[in-house]
Design a binder for these strands. Sequence first.
DNA 1: CTCTGGCACTCTGTGTTCCCGAGTGCCAAG
DNA 2: CTTGGCACTCGGGAACACAGAGTGCCAGAG
Lengths: 337, 337
Amino acid sequence: MLDDRKLAVLRAIVEDYVSTNEPVGSKALADRHNLGVSPATIRNDMAALEEQGYITQPHTSAGRVPTDKGYRLFVDRLSQIKPLSGAERRAIETFLAGAVDLDEIVMRTVRLLAQLTRQVAVVQYPSLTRSSVRHVEIVPLAERRVMLVLITNTGRVEQRVVDLPEALAEDRIANLRSVLNGCLDGCWLSQVPETVAGIPERLPPEERPVVATIMSVLLETLVERHEEKIVFGGTANLAGADFSVGLRDVLEALEEQVVLMRLLGETGGLSELTVRIGSENPYSGLRGTSIVAAGYGSGDKELARLGVLGPTRMDYPVTMGAVRAVARYVGQILAGS
Amino acid sequence: MLDDRKLAVLRAIVEDYVSTNEPVGSKALADRHNLGVSPATIRNDMAALEEQGYITQPHTSAGRVPTDKGYRLFVDRLSQIKPLSGAERRAIETFLAGAVDLDEIVMRTVRLLAQLTRQVAVVQYPSLTRSSVRHVEIVPLAERRVMLVLITNTGRVEQRVVDLPEALAEDRIANLRSVLNGCLDGCWLSQVPETVAGIPERLPPEERPVVATIMSVLLETLVERHEEKIVFGGTANLAGADFSVGLRDVLEALEEQVVLMRLLGETGGLSELTVRIGSENPYSGLRGTSIVAAGYGSGDKELARLGVLGPTRMDYPVTMGAVRAVARYVGQILAGS
DNA sequence: CTCTGGCACTCTGTGTTCCCGAGTGCCAAG
DNA sequence: CTTGGCACTCGGGAACACAGAGTGCCAGAG
């Protein structure tokens, strides 16, 4: 159905179209790539490719443009992920290593991705549920008010003010603190609910009302923040590109956490690349854009995802290379901190 | 020089131009506003206004458009800040009250401002230096590694990992923690450096190397983060507007923390409005945009600033009303939490 | 059966011209 | 100082023609 030459033609069309942003015709193809055949032959192949929906022509007498299906074939079978240059790798490493806390790691990652790919970068904070407790802290603020601070092994810090049913003296707090940490330290966040359930029994009855309050806030923190935090950047890169769909829709989608979450998608394996091309993605406002995403994590556990969003007409090999590389480096940095 | 009627004409021009986005001519003015004079008279006034640089015409035979100077006069003398409706006030209140921690307060504020004004919202996190210490926490992570957590009275939490010169047992940490908090609790952040300097003397000599390390990180946290964190949102609102300068420049400026800082500007009094119109603002990429900003804070101390950025052609009275109202409410919320 | 050159055809984009209308500036009269 | 009248200017849209790129198809050659 699609012999080798037709595939080569498709590849050439994608590459040319990506670099020139203009529909590509048979003559131009014959000139720029030495396919060893005449324009007429290429025309026949193009007709076949169009027949099967891999390319299309904007108007009757214009060149061809790849369809989403065409890009899909290109990504799956015709392209090789392009690794970064040594200089780029070093730049990434030093740039990320300079980060001093989680916020800054994430912020720098966004910048990095945006700069490297010249697209919009999207980075999800390391998932709460997939990390473990490093420390729980109870900080007295007032008579009947404390702040609960939860620190995870990924460096993430969650805080919540708790209003207590009764006043709580220093020594009781210290005691509570050590009990809590004794139970929860190193505990997988997903198992916190069960672990927490067993705690009241370990305490004298008079502590239970207070503990119950604190517990409920703690659990609430975990549940509420289940919708993970996502940041993005590099929107300036959108200004140049022209989307089939309005710029407005894209910007709106970016500001919807929920949409972003779904865009980054569910995981494949760790640093496995997910590519969503145009209409493949789940949000109608983003027809005309593609997403390249990967999971990142320390060790073998995927903590969260990151990726870039750009016009369907993007340089997939380069973008994929950059996303993969950044995902790996971020994983390393997180593991090392 | 500028009699009352000329001022009325200028006001009418600004209002019409803002609402129609088209150069406004003498006839249209005479029709829509009942100024009680004929178009010809208005033309004379317009000529005078143009002479003095308050308005200008895009082409020889088009209507007039306000200049930056014209908007300035309008804002200073011809307009009244438009208060929000009761419904809007209530909406703000309930929306902000639902926030559970500082991050969420800021995030919601951004959304609110963007939605209310249909412009880009910019919000600065409560300044570190202008708040006070609520608690310092030292959390052991590993043998020779602790996490330093600093909580301010505005609910802001700063964290930093510290590598120690020697191992540190639980009881020593507890001791250190209480000493630190004893000295620093309630301490104005700007005075932390001096306060900290006196601490080593209060400790036995063998603790001093460890304390020195921790101190230096603590100070570093304060200094480094002196460049305050700023977030923005509502960029989708830029899509409709047409800037004289490219959209790209605006988006780029927004992603530069430093530029944003300078845009929000230095403070006037608390919830005093600052308006920067077009070329008045310090960044060349933002010619064609105006900034309306205000300080917010709890009590009488300004903690940080917030504002919106939009095309010079914006509805100043409404925008100013919204910014002022939001600034006040955020202040209240911060004070109450 | 596949490739190639030739040829007629079909579009889009661009440049030109033309004209309408909105809006102005100026002037003379009220 | 205000007003109506009038000639003038200029931008923007409509109509039109044209060149160029690209196609599809066909018949002939390997």
